[in-house]
Amino acid sequence: MTLCDDIRLQELMTAIAADKGDEIAQVDRALADFPDDPRLHFLRGSLLAAIGRPIEALSALKAAVALAPDFAIARFQLGFFQLTSGEAGDALSTWGPLALLPDGHYLRTFVAGLTYLIRDEFAAAVEQLRLGIATNEENLPLNRDMQLIIDRISELTAGDGGDETMSATSLLLGQFSGRSN
């Protein structure tokens, strides 16, 4: 496997940051030279996700993880992408190997939090996501995403008066509330 050298990768990142609108074409040119570089596939997947091309984004993220199964951040982001696509089962399968990260690693903690979220165990989800944010110092944009989820959970649970179990009577009455004749 020949990897793109760091200088070219840095140039690529600088060009993308310049936001000229040809980011995908630039990554594709680099990929033509280094088709097995998982970082380029990951970058391509992230860009495609950002511009609303989800089907191709998923393929690119999967290619990154297939080329480098230990590429932890790519694996986490692939799972997160699957989760946000409503594919919770796929996300959990993708994240499985992250359980081998050291105890207390922020990605492992985020996965624990999101797994609680999938099970609707909101208090435990918030606890783990907060813990992950507190320990993550290397990927700050991820902290912002997780904070958004915590905020959303807070909104949801704030309005929860504990009456989610509908009584048989209200169910029966509700059944006929939308009649048009």
């Binding site: 989760l83 946000t84 409503g86 999101l114 979220l117 609707d120 989820i149 959303r152 949801l156």
Partner: peptide, 10 residues
């Protein structure tokens, strides 16, 4: 919980 994170477009 899944509703919270699901993006309708994705």
């Amino acid at each position: 919980g899944l509703d919270i994170v699901t993006d309708p477009v994705r």
